[in-house]
Design a protein around this nucleic acid. Structure first.
Lengths: 312, 312
DNA sequence: CTGAAAGCGCTTACAG
DNA sequence: CTGAAAGCGCTTACAG
């Protein structure tokens, strides 16, 4: 692979001068520039980003950690992060963690060793020490779609799950439901707990307590993927949705609007979050500081056809 | 951030010795090793992978390019690649290309500059020059789930689309269909063309030609995501699936088995492909050669409920 | 406008 | 068993 010295030699200039034309900007005589450019074209030279990073002490790479890449909500978040990062010249290391502490820790180590400039966390296991580990090493981190009030250094792009759950419960109770359950989440996601708590608080305000899954006439799931899987399990067992039991999701993935699903859910804007997270993390990293910023969005309830009148 | 010299100084040894204990293996006196290990623990030292890569002339990173990360089939491929790569100490740069030539080229440049050791291509625009560009720079590349017979240096993990389409057409014709169409693909995917051609050949063998989308009683889509979207569009316009029109997909994503979808489709094993692709690409890269290998899998037809008897 | 030199943080022969 | 030295491919003051 050709290096900068190769092109310098070929153009008959010093390495510094070759570097100046490669990076652009610096003042170089027109004739010299042309000679170097010809050498670059002839050799097909591409700068070595690794050497650059070493010198610059910045990898121009960020990590993004999601619990489940096969969930379209997270896939969309990653796509959005990638797009925004790419536009700024950053590469992205996307990691599917399954909220497994060992995976999270291994990932943390890998991201630290590769000296990522920042990491965006789309979901993480409850009680994880990863954010602190990263922060302590001077890596900018933003939490996207979950909250973690404990560390001031964090960037947080959050949505108001308590309010969303309040709206969900209000909707369901308005349909006459009294036995409502929250489906246990598949992964030990931090945000899942928060939603369950918001759900239980909203019930408590109405003097209700959570029902068991089998007794419930309405079930709210931690996210759309789980809601959709739940509908399948319910219908396999002969229950009709929403006639016998109503189901509500969270995220509003594209599939939720499909005519055969028509899921009642809470809309969460992954694309916006991803873009914003990149802005925050790259901005902070460039200024050599932590993000120290939080913002709260509110997510609207989208009523479709998986929620209906309570039976009887 | 603490460096190797810091820990060496702290342990009172040379940098070489510190390096020897960090990497393990090399012969170091027990007492010395302990002193260095203490220094590592005390400083929280993590080796700088960038410096390592520069010296080793290997980034220990691979790229994976997919047309659409929000399609669970590709997400699964990426997850599988990540897992296999991670186990070998490789990082993965996942890129969602949308089969846009500009994105593919920009990605190619980024992957070359970052000196990835290999790239796995899960889908690419028809006629793309990306594989050749990469190959010419000595980067190992494997095509997963598509074929590209032109370049011997490639690794190819392919499935037999012609045979699969033959089975699809046989199934549909067996149900009495005579007017069959292939839905135009959303992205300009290389493999899409191949499926369409396989489909048309299978028709031709029966003396049939492709029908228009509106006249067709059976439509085969390029993949499950498109088949599922197609069902929605059809049913919105008042057609019943499969009563009025049968729909067949490709991939067998988890959702295809959902009770409300029950899509007839061709099963393709993304997880296996991802794992195999990593083996091939890492193996070749380590030996400093191209992959030069191709294998063909055959994908079974999974008959569910979106395909039925031809109307009338 | 151009170039010599130092240095980013490692690894790797090579002496001792 | 340990250490001094060179070098991976760049960038960046600094002279000239």
């Amino acid at each position: 692979m050709t290096t900068l010295v190769d092109v310098a030699r070929r153009a008959g200039v010093s390495q510094s001068t070759a570097s100046n034309v490669v990076r652009g900007g610096a003042l170089v005589a027109e004739a010299t520039r042309e000679r170097v450019e010809r050498a670059i074209a002839e050799t097909g030279y591409h700068p070595n980003a690794i050497a650059r990073s070493l010198k610059a002490r910045s990898s121009k790479a960020i990590g993004v950690l999601v619990p489940d890449l096969t969930n379209p909500f997270y896939a969309e978040l990653v796509v959005s992060v990638e797009r925004a990062a790419g536009a700024l010249g950053y590469a992205v290391l996307a990691v599917h963690s399954e909220c497994l502490p060992e995976t999270e820790n291994a990932t943390g180590r890998a991201l630290i060793e590769r000296r990522v400039d920042g990491v965006i966390i789309g979901g993480i296991s409850v009680g994880s020490s990863l954010p602190k580990t990263l922060l302590d090493r001077g890596i900018a981190v933003v939490l996207a779609s979950l909250g973690e009030p404990t560390d001031q250094r964090l960037g947080v792009i959050d949505h108001d799950d308590a309010k969303a759950m309040e709206a969900v419960v209000e909707h369901l109770c308005g349909l006459g439901h009294r036995r409502l359950a929250f489906a246990p989440q598949a992964l030990r996601e931090n945000s899942g707990e928060r939603r369950r708590i918001g759900f239980e608080n909203a019930l408590a305000q109405r003097g209700l307590t959570p029902a068991g899954l089998d007794a419930a006439t309405a079930i709210v799931a931690h996210n759309d993927m789980q809601a959709i899987a739940l509908i399948d399990r319910l219908e396999e067992r002969g229950k009709r949705v929403p006639h016998d039991v109503s189901v509500v999701g969270y995220d509003d993935i594209p599939l939720a609007a499909h005519g055969r699903i028509r899921l009642t859910t809470v809309r969460s804007d992954a694309t916006h979050m991803g873009r914003r997270a990149v802005e925050l993390v790259v901005g902070a990293s460039r200024e050599g500081r932590h993000v120290c910023w939080r913002e709260l969005h509110s997510n609207p309830l989208i009523i479709r056809s998986t929620s209906g009148k309570a039976p009887r």
